Amino acid sequence: MIATACLIAVCIIAAAALMNLYRLAKGPDVLDRILSLETLTTNTIGLVVVIGIWYGTSLYFEIALLFVAVGFLSTVAFCKYLLRGNVIE
């Protein structure tokens, strides 16, 4: 039962990631592309967590925590770059 639910969740998250990739490529401006990249990071985290549940190991949850940290820092860096023109002052 869990394997079927995880398979359905992986398919749905993969479809959402494909839609985010489309928005990343065709976004009308830079802000839409940054938002799409952040949402793609969230989808990747969800995908890694579901795969961790599917395989029953905790290693994937640690990988998801790394994705959370990198995703947050990259979004902050992109936004700061857009606002001020540089990341490190």
Rank of each mutant, 00 (worst) to 15 (best):
residue 31 L to S: 08
residue 82 L to E: 04
residue 63 I to G: 08
residue 60 Y to W: 13
residue 63 I to E: 13
residue 88 I to V: 07
residue 64 A to P: 05
residue 75 T to H: 08
residue 78 F to L: 11
residue 52 G to D: 07
residue 56 G to Q: 06
residue 2 I to G: 12
residue 40 L to C: 05
residue 13 I to R: 00
residue 15 A to S: 13
residue 9 A to V: 10
residue 82 L to M: 05
residue 24 L to M: 10
residue 69 A to L: 15
residue 62 E to Q: 13
residue 19 M to Y: 07
residue 60 Y to I: 02
residue 24 L to V: 05
residue 81 Y to M: 10
residue 21 L to S: 01
residue 2 I to S: 06
residue 52 G to N: 08
residue 14 A to N: 06
residue 81 Y to A: 01
residue 8 I to T: 15
residue 59 L to F: 11
residue 58 S to M: 12
residue 77 A to N: 01
residue 3 A to K: 11
residue 69 A to V: 15
residue 84 R to P: 00
residue 89 E to Y: 04
residue 71 G to F: 07
residue 6 C to Q: 07
residue 81 Y to P: 01
residue 73 L to K: 01
residue 55 Y to T: 08
residue 15 A to R: 01
residue 83 L to Y: 06
residue 10 V to Y: 06
residue 74 S to E: 08
residue 79 C to V: 09
residue 29 D to P: 00
residue 18 L to W: 09
residue 37 L to C: 12
residue 38 E to W: 02
residue 65 L to Y: 13
residue 71 G to T: 12
residue 4 T to V: 10
residue 49 V to R: 09
residue 61 F to A: 14
residue 16 A to E: 02
residue 4 T to F: 11
residue 54 W to L: 14
residue 75 T to I: 09
residue 43 N to Q: 10
residue 43 N to D: 14
residue 49 V to Y: 04
residue 70 V to G: 09
residue 79 C to R: 05
residue 12 I to V: 15
residue 87 V to N: 04
residue 27 G to E: 04
residue 68 V to Q: 13
residue 82 L to F: 03
residue 40 L to H: 03
residue 4 T to Q: 14
residue 40 L to Y: 11
residue 78 F to D: 02
residue 15 A to P: 01
residue 86 N to H: 02
residue 84 R to T: 07
residue 39 T to Y: 10
residue 56 G to S: 05
residue 72 F to P: 11
residue 63 I to S: 13
residue 53 I to G: 09
residue 52 G to F: 09
residue 50 V to K: 08
residue 44 T to S: 15
residue 38 E to C: 08
residue 23 R to S: 07
residue 70 V to S: 15
residue 29 D to S: 03
residue 42 T to K: 06
